[in-house]
Write a protein that binds this DNA or RNA. Structure first.
Lengths: 333, 333
DNA sequence: TTGTACGCGTTATCAA
DNA sequence: TTGATAACGCGTACAA
């Protein structure tokens, strides 16, 4: 049932393989009559060329790998969805396929294997921890086309939100509404994003001449519980904050929960600005004021550049682009 | 830099390709000395076999495709994450790779192509709308190993939550706490899950001898806004419900929002049970009583069975498994 | 406009 | 225990 190879089909049609191959590629140099006769038959037989034979011969393979560290994937939920959606869009626009990989811990050896075995022709690495940047560089050194999403490395094409600015506008908002004691709930410290948002927070304080207070910074580890614990500590301070900037949406929700439970009014007693605009932020009670990062665009762009890189690997200059974050005003600040 | 082919390496080592191939496969029939000599060199050269050459020769390819309808992917967020995580686990346990596909609308032609071009050796279809079941059957008829996640078809191996039971236990909970006017917020009607949960709702009502009232059923289209609109309509009824079961977490959150805004107390005035236990449900205000479905397990199992199917395609009997939903009691009912 | 024939890098069968 | 050698199915330079 159904023709399996070009050879078979060629025999049945009484033409050469080469001619059918031309039809498949829409090569002009085929008589119109022959063309229609062949393409009708191709349709009918539901013939599709064996990709392995093709890429063995052509040395090309239209597949790109998207590598998630397990942490990012399991805990960051929406984050992963937008990333996949953005990359998938670029892939389908360019007739590429997307392969997914999740790694317990970033594994440069495995990345190399994916490439050298010709499974993929390039890799997109998502949210690599700072400690792993060196390994990513190694992968690149072996000649693997690589781009980074939501992390940064001088020698690799990197795409991320301008997290410093994100932290800055979040904090600035709190300053603008008159807050004097602004706390910060930090994400995991070895993550690129977390450190950058912290910088933005400090920058805004310095700019306005507000003093930076160590006791107003707590680590919430990017999670609900972490946000709760951090907020609880902040509330127990002798001089509790009158505003909080939490560096992702989970910690924000955790913090709000604790504030409400303690009887604090939001934003009257404590104003809150979060990070990431997940669908639920708008529908939370109260609706959360937060900084949105265009994750899907970031992912899309990094994928597009990777495809360029695959086509012309000679490019020396590395791209890097930091996308604009955007403050979404709702009820918490 | 680095050996590219078996041939090259064979020459350098003064052995035949076949011998190296044996070492790669851990074949016993190689002298120990030869074995260690070769494997050391393999390691050093970072040689990995060309997958295309290998699958061309062996006619095998350790890749499985996971096909999302676009709707399910973009709107169902967490849903997709758990699904991917479960499938990815099965893949890595069996040394398979995972390829992702998102389709605007289910496209059997494309599914067939993926298989016939040997890109994948089987497909997992996620949450196919009822209308598309026929197309899925066609794909199967062409010999593609296929399993279904979160939808059901008699002739295809199917894995889903026991949604009827889920709807039943949700409704039963509301009955048990003494509610007499129980409303239902329906998901998109042509989706398998939605219809099943509705059945469970009706079953619980009938069982207790409560009459089914058409006006207590509203469609919320599985989305926040839909949930809000539906709830608003329900509140405007002459005899508003004293309980609501909403068929997914987004509609649940939408409904709660509207109830709170209208001044209703939860669960005192209106009790609410949701569906899906997303991380945010626990941290919502109020924490949401909901029905959990073991999505990750469902996905894992469907992937495992697909791999079996690929290994031994002769099996006539189709598997189907309906996983147990679980009521998670929190504050809304 | 159409066809021939070699090469791509493995696997696997047989023979040594 | 090892090694020739023929597939595997397609791409493409070159020839007709």
């Amino acid at each position: 049932m159904g023709i399996k190879t070009l050879e078979e089909l060629a025999k049945k049609l009484g033409v050469s393989r080469r001619t059918i191959s031309r039809v498949l590629k829409d090569d002009k140099k085929v008589a119109e009559e022959t063309h229609t006769r062949i393409s009708k038959r191709l349709e009918k037989e539901k013939y599709f060329p064996n990709i392995h034979a093709a890429s063995l011969a052509s040395r090309k393979i239209n597949v790109v790998g998207l590598v998630f560290p397990k942490g990012a994937f399991v805990n960051a939920d929406f984050f992963a969805i937008d990333t996949i959606a953005g990359v998938a869009k670029a892939m389908s626009e360019n007739n590429y396929q997307l392969m997914m990989f999740t790694q317990e811990k970033f594994n440069s050896e495995q990345c190399l294997r994916l490439y050298k075995s010709r499974l993929v022709s390039g890799l997109i690495l998502v949210a690599i921890a700072e400690d792993d940047i060196a390994h990513a560089m190694e992968v690149k050194k072996y000649g693997v086309p690589v781009t980074l999403i939501c992390s940064y490395c001088k020698s690799i094409d990197s795409f991320a939100c301008n997290n410093v600015k994100g932290g800055y506008i979040a904090t600035k908002r709190l300053i603008d509404i008159g807050r004097k004691r602004i706390a910060f709930i930090h994400g995991r410290e070895n993550w690129f994003d977390a450190a950058e948002r912290f910088k933005g927070y400090k920058k805004a304080l310095v700019e306005i001449g507000m003093k930076f207070r160590r006791e107003y910074v707590e680590n919430g580890y990017f999670d609900f519980d972490g946000g709760e614990t951090a907020m609880r500590k902040l509330l127990h301070l002798k001089e509790p904050p009158d505003a909080v900037f939490a560096a992702n949406y989970k910690m924000t929700i955790g913090a709000i929960k604790v504030i409400k439970k303690s009887g604090g009014r939001i934003p009257k007693d404590i104003a809150v600005v979060g990070f990431d605009d997940m669908p639920v932020c708008e529908h939370f009670d109260p609706p959360i004021t937060t900084v949105e990062q265009p994750l899907k665009d970031i992912a899309y762009e990094s994928a597009r550049v990777l495809l360029d890189l695959i086509d012309s690997p000679r490019k020396k200059k590395t791209h890097k682009k930091f996308f604009e974050p955007k403050l979404i005003l709702r009820s918490t600040a």
